[in-house]
Structure formats: C-alpha cells, structure tokens
Nucleic acid binder design. Sequence first.
DNA 1: TATTGTTATACTCTATAACTATA
DNA 2: TATAGTTATAGAGTATAACAATA
Lengths: 139, 139
Amino acid sequence: MSSPTPEQVWAELQGFVEAHAVRKRLRERLGTAMGTGGGKVKLLLLLESSALSHGEVAEALGVDRPYTTVLVNALEEQGLVERRTDSDDRRRKLVALTEQGRRTVSDAREVIDTPPAALDRLSPAELTSLSKILAKLHG
Amino acid sequence: MSSPTPEQVWAELQGFVEAHAVRKRLRERLGTAMGTGGGKVKLLLLLESSALSHGEVAEALGVDRPYTTVLVNALEEQGLVERRTDSDDRRRKLVALTEQGRRTVSDAREVIDTPPAALDRLSPAELTSLSKILAKLHG
DNA sequence: TATTGTTATACTCTATAACTATA
DNA sequence: TATAGTTATAGAGTATAACAATA
C-alpha cells in the first residue's frame, strides 16, 4: 500500500476543517447579535489583551478607519466596548472592553479554543505525531 | 516529554489552515472579477459536473432563488454560464457552463486542489501518518 | 500642514415580498 | 392553484472621499 499523495492529504485536511468550521460554531454560540461578518468578533478578541486606538485597530484588523468607527459604534451601542479620549493626544480615542464585553470575549474564546470532539479520540502518540507534522509544515 | 494536549494541536491546526486559506489564494488567482463572497465561485464549481436548474442551484448552494437569479445574471454577463429553457417544462431554466466558464473552473480547481508547498516537504511516512490520523478524525 | 477620528456616500453580498409565465 | 424564475426592495458588511478637531 503506497503512501497518499499530498493532494489527497490536502483534500482530507480541507474536509476536516470545513466540517468543524469555527465561524459556524461561533455563530451558534453568540447568536445573531454579532452579525455575520467577522469584524466585530475579531475586534473584541483583539481588545482582549489591551485597549487600542482606532488607528491601531484598523491596522490590526486590516480595515480602514471609517469602518473602524462603524464597528466601534456598533459594539459601543451593545455595551461591549467604550471609547476614552487619550489625554496625551486628544485626537486619539482608545477603545477598551467593558465588563460585559470581557464576558462576551470569554464566551467566544471558549468556542474558538475548544477542539472539536474528534480530536479527543486521538491517542497521545497520535497527538504527538500530528503535532510534529504540523510543526514541520509551519516551519 | 509529554504529548501535546488536544487544545494545543487544535491551535496548530487552525494556524496552518489559516495561513494557507484557500479563499485568499483563489482571490489572488481569479482577481476581483468574481467578487469577495464565495457565491459565484461555488456556483461555477457546482456546474462543473452537470447543468442544473435554478432551483437545484439554490438548493445545492443553500441560497434562495432570487439570489440565484442574481448570481446567474452576473456570471452570464461575464460569459461564464448560459441559460437554456428546459423543453419539457418551459418554466425551468438550466444553467450550464460555457466554454470560457469551463476554463475558469479549471483555473479555480487548480488553486483549490493544489496543496500548499509545505505539504510537499512531508515524507511518504509522514503523509501516511497524517492521512491515517485525519481518517480517524473524520470517522 | 499632517494626523485622528467622523460623516456622507456608495458598492457588494444576501434575504424577503410581490410579480410573471408556465404547468 | 401551484411552481419556476424574475423584479423590486431592503439590510448587513465594507470601501472611498470629504470633513472636523487636534497636533
């Protein structure tokens, strides 16, 4: 029995991640409140580590600044983030998670970080093997 | 050295597929002509095997029929598909790839089916191992 | 004058409701 | 009257251009 081709393995890999699409699981968990585009969720996850200015948000998210304003407005109206004018440079506004926003992010984190149940069926040896292979793919 | 946790492996797996996102590669290959939503590309791939009625397209794509009309209109204007009234039931219209559409699909297929270069770096043994693990995950 | 954020506007993707033609 | 497709309209997501405030 010969080894599979890279094409076959690639197809299998695509099938697996397709089947366990995180976006779909996120939608199920967070409901429709956060829309279908990934922008709002990405922004919340981004703010998890620290508050950022609009410019920094735009840069990190790969969107432009007008749209950043739209995103921040929407999340602010939902009470998930708040704006604070930077006292050093009064043009800048820092966007930070509110307490409620922090809870929402924890919720999303849980979905994103929880591996699909299928992964639990792998033996320690298989996990090690898979991890090594992925490391080689990354490097 | 203990084996990695499912959480760690899952994070690595997500990182890999993120880095080699097919959608991004498709956009690079097909340019902006086919828009940013996946609808048009999915429809072309769907028609690869056979012509379908609007209703069948809607069903297979998971969109409604009005939007199917929009998609078909757009691809028809680009010369990639054509409509043909079904002679048995004159209400139905079959959507089929044109010759140009068929070439475009071949192009897309190539992008989708081509594994990232990283996969070529795996040995036959590693490919076998990865394939077996993925099979177990799927089953 | 350059930079930060905002407003106004527009374009793409997709859905819902009302309509036309054929069955 | 039911079904296939279409048109009209609307809403979400995102971009571009012009603007206001601060530096």
